[in-house]
């Protein structure tokens, strides 16, 4: 069946099997930042923003996002032009193998879109459901707080946040 959705600002029509999961539809279409971890909704590596809300794409049918607006990490920034969340994750040393990072960045993005000045407790809450097996969790929390500060500075300077 045909599935039409806006992915990272581009309207796309994908051919998917009716029982296809969103994670497979996206990875098959080239969005490989969406990681396949537990496949049971428990690890957060496959997180995608659907209309701005983080969802575990391994427990979502592709058909559920018909007409929706999707964001993956590919839509946030590039190696040349990284999003402040990406920069902050690298600077804090929150990335080791990197497998959990895209999902954490997207949940953090959803948090900062709603609350530009979160507390550490808010960040922990937003990252609940994301498992990391390398660095632990402290550096990711520091990174999100740092990114929030960078985005606020940028907004104050009139640069506008992405």
């Amino acid at each position: 069946m045909k599935l039409t959705a806006t992915i990272n600002g581009v309207r796309r029509t994908l051919e998917v099997a009716p029982r296809a999961l969103l994670i497979d539809a996206l990875r098959d279409a080239g969005y490989t930042s969406v990681k396949r971890g537990c496949e049971t909704g428990d690890c957060g590596a496959c997180t995608v923003l659907v209309d701005g809300v983080p969802l575990a794409s391994c427990v979502v049918f592709a058909g559920q996002v018909e007409g929706r607006v999707l964001t993956t990490v590919e839509g946030l920034g590039t190696p040349d032009r990284p999003h402040p969340l990406m920069e902050a994750m690298v600077d804090a040393g929150a990335v080791q193998c990197g497998f959990c990072t895209p999902g954490m960045i997207l949940s953090a993005k959803a948090l900062l879109d709603e609350n530009p000045d979160p507390t550490a407790a808010d960040v922990k809450d937003a990252l609940d459901g994301h498992l990391c097996r390398c660095t632990g969790y402290v550096k990711q929390i520091e990174a999100v707080l740092d990114a929030a500060a960078r985005l606020r500075t940028r907004a104050a300077a009139g640069g506008g946040a992405r």
Partner: peptide, 9 residues
Amino acid sequence: CGSRLLQNQ
């Protein structure tokens, strides 16, 4: 219910 992530769903 589940994790914060799954609570969105």
